[in-house]
Design a binder for these strands. Sequence first.
DNA 1: GGGTAGCACTCCCCGCACGGGAGTGCCAAT
DNA 2: ATTGGCACTCCCGTGCGGGGAGTGCTACCC
Lengths: 340, 340
Amino acid sequence: MSEDRRLDVLRAIVEDYVATKEPVGSRALVERHSLGVSPATIRNDMAALEEGGYIAQPHTSAGRVPTDKGYRLFVDQLSTVKPLSSPERRAIGTFLETAQDLDDVVDRAVRLIAQLTQQVAVVQYPSLRRSALRHVELVPVGSRHLLVVLITDTGRVEQRTLELGTDLDESVVARLRTRLNVSAAGRRLSELPVALGELTDGFAPTDQVLVNAVVAVVEETLAQESEERVVLAGTANLARVGSSDVRSIGPVLEALEEQVVLLRLFSEMAEDHAAVAVRIGRETQHDGLVETSFVTTGYGDEGGGSVARIGSIGPLRMDYPGTMSAVRAVARYLTRILAQ
Amino acid sequence: MSEDRRLDVLRAIVEDYVATKEPVGSRALVERHSLGVSPATIRNDMAALEEGGYIAQPHTSAGRVPTDKGYRLFVDQLSTVKPLSSPERRAIGTFLETAQDLDDVVDRAVRLIAQLTQQVAVVQYPSLRRSALRHVELVPVGSRHLLVVLITDTGRVEQRTLELGTDLDESVVARLRTRLNVSAAGRRLSELPVALGELTDGFAPTDQVLVNAVVAVVEETLAQESEERVVLAGTANLARVGSSDVRSIGPVLEALEEQVVLLRLFSEMAEDHAAVAVRIGRETQHDGLVETSFVTTGYGDEGGGSVARIGSIGPLRMDYPGTMSAVRAVARYLTRILAQ
DNA sequence: GGGTAGCACTCCCCGCACGGGAGTGCCAAT
DNA sequence: ATTGGCACTCCCGTGCGGGGAGTGCTACCC
């Protein structure tokens, strides 16, 4: 029993099952793929694959369906990259290039992936921690409130309102603004706390209150993990006919609404060495997502490290090669555009 | 045949149908409500209501179900306000008050409505057009780019990057910044174009290019209708068991992803004189939403006029009184908090 | 004239049995 | 190791029948 053919059989099963959405039997397999052997032989291979846990049958006397483990093997070893057509590439490029600002770019990118993969697309906003600070603006609001605005080099803007016990002194605010920008501009946000610590020097004791408050707000903002926003698109694709079980979309929608879940997955997948990371079924470690797979890749840094992630969520029986290349292509364009 | 009783019957049918999700028959009606007459009498009333188009039967020999017209009558004349419990009110208050910034408040408000109504919640971000400008900030980025940041009195921040043909002169930028804020601060965005028009006076001809470019960007930003963002929560509630037809959620999800549709509905409903506006079934004028109803109310201006809207979308057979009071309550708290 | 009781009728829905079909596992033969 | 043959299992679509809920109609009552 040839080991190679057994893997061919697994690949054929995955491909056929993805295409037909129905358990695939030995007869159909030899007909659709030129395997050069008889159904009976395939049945033997199937028995072995089932023994190994790569495929399973929904019930006795039904065809076979890949298991999580089967998909995993397929993704790791059996699938071949499926390049996008050049019109597709062009469309991605022009669609993203005509965007106005950061929000717009991100929004278009996520819609694009939803469109290309016909699945749910997810994008993580450029993280504050990893991007660099471009400018800090202090805006007095009334006499006792100060609006603190942080602008990063990815064009992201964060704001906080600060309530003060005493009236504002405009000149102090101006000095603080200048010094903040001198010591902060261009630095990675993760390095900032150190720079901020030395900032209080040179201010009169009475002004220290203000300075400390502002510094505290800046640090607090940076520390807030919750600011890692996630944006979705294409949730309607979950309800498309032929999607797994129509009733199973409830738990999925719930999972998607919990940003925490998605952020955890994003950050775990950032550890993967692979260019495109994949989580299949139970690998997602979340009950609502056991019948889905998640394909992500990083974007935002031409150096190779990445600022944030973007990806696509679909049924276990998704078109892995197609999804992976779509996600990757969009991420590349996105990175290029953000670099400007 | 008493006209009053006929309306009582309609109310009873709506209430029972909402509660049981099943067509309601004459027998069940007299048992559950003390109408004081026999099933046969009710049947006569039902025949009249059906004649009038307020109810219908899914098939011969089935109970009756309210039509769009029936729900409309119920909402307009038959329903009684259902006040929230005081623990509920308190929960809303504290939950919203502990929010950090505008994004956070809006996010919490929409989740709250999803939670309270067990339906999909929708909120429209405070519109740029109607809010007032608090501050304009100009931030040089490199020597040939200028970041324009607009801050409104609702705490919203809009940004645009401007690419210049010539190098920046910091002193001109500073003067422009000052003048912009003098002429713009506190004005409604809709009145701004006039104020901006006079701004170019007093700048050297060589600087006019810069000034005009900045003014153009500000005006363009304000003109962009697309900036009326919409945020959703509770989409998973669509898939809850007992929701209309599970297969019908596809079109609904599609409709919800098209912000245009929601924005149109929001703006149409803003014209309604009623405190809480309701669109039932086909009244939404959108195919994907024919089996849903949309309940909205304004928020954001204590004067009574409103800056934006917030609402809830659910099945035709929703708990209208409950939904209406939940939406209204959240909108009130939201308005109060934004006023600070 | 409105309300009521009785009754025949309609239609849904559920359980059940049945048969066709797809696919398997195994065995003996090559 | 591969293959053809064959018995077996199980799903699924279909047709059938009975129970039940609900209606519309008619005759009757106050």
